[in-house]
Amino acid sequence: MKLTLRVWRQRAADADGAMSTYEVDGISPDMSFLEMLDTLNEDLILRGEDPVAFDHDCREGICGACSLVVNGDAHGPERTTTCQLHMRSFQDGDTIDVEPWRAAAFPVIKDLVVDRSAFDRIIQAGGYITAPTGAAPEAHATPVPKPDADFAFEHAECIGCGACVAACPNGAAMLFTSAKINHLNVLPQGAPERETRVLEMVAQMDEEGFGGCTLAGECATACPKGIPLVSITGMNREWLRATRKAAGR
């Protein structure tokens, strides 16, 4: 396959950026999108140019590092991570636009790499349990009803990639934050911090400069792990409950 790429290039966080056009040839439809970019980078290095910086780690769809907006879609046209997107999703001769996640809370560091440490700080605000865990406990020691376990697992699937923020017209981190809150708040292990968790994580989310939810639903469409839009409804419910309880105390 022969493709034309238009890629966001930005030398540094404080530099101006622009789209640059590159031609890549000899692309196999079985390559992943990142392998296609590797091919481009090999070319660039041989030509003595600066390779395109982009985030990646596991390349198997589980770490959440890869983060590209491909033709206006976070993670591209398939519902998966960019590393699991394959070139067979494109046609020979296509022009493909590659941009970084866009949000005030995710500033660009270089080219396609953005700073997602705002997510880490949201987790630090309450995305954990304080019960001492030690070695793996006996599985039946703390019974969890099956529907709750399924609910927790569905939300635990979030890999913290930030596609939800990138897709949201308001740069909101509601889907990510709600996934973490719902995951822990439904489990007995998460119960001691049930109220403080939601209050502090939402406060941190606001503090980081993410936008608010207008229920446009773009996040859930972009999410490679299928975190549903109703997760946000669940988070709102938890937040209102915690606020009422805090006032009643």
């Binding site: 206006g72 005030a104 446009a216």
Partner: peptide
């Protein structure tokens, strides 16, 4: 919301 998303994508597509 507007402050949280200062830069637009170059590649636009219809939304919501």
């Amino acid at each position: 919301d507007i402050r949280a998303r200062p830069a637009k994508y170059v590649h636009r597509r219809p939304r919501a």
